[in-house]
Amino acid sequence: MARVMIVDDALFMRQMLIKILVGEGHEICAEASNAKEAVEKYKQFKPDFVTMDIVMPMMEELDGIGAVREIIKIDPKAKVLIVSAMGQQSLVVEAIRAGAKDFVSKPVQSTRLIEVIKNILSS
């Protein structure tokens, strides 16, 4: 079981993800609602993996992709999972380039999310 940080600007999405992840026995060690907070909390909590909403409001020149980049800079082995709406392929590609490990699309299906996380944790 892993320690997870959830990054999403929508409280609703965070709660949904938390419900799925806690149901799988993971521990939510941090939540962040913007990119800057995500980077800070990553440093502080060192989670085993991060779910990152790719579209978030700019925060001090940092967006979702910027946050992925920063986190990878802090920890090249960081496991970041992108959560994105369909049709944002270019953003997802950008995030993969920045070092994200995988992605799931909204609406998030719990079975898929669980499987993806299992894959990420075992890689």
Binding site: M86, Q89, V92, V93, R97, F103
Partner: peptide, 13 residues
């Protein structure tokens, strides 16, 4: 599979 391009990109990278 949704976002085929991104998925393929992930595989390739």
């Amino acid at each position: 599979c949704v976002m085929k391009e991104a998925r393929a990109f992930l595989v390739i990278s």
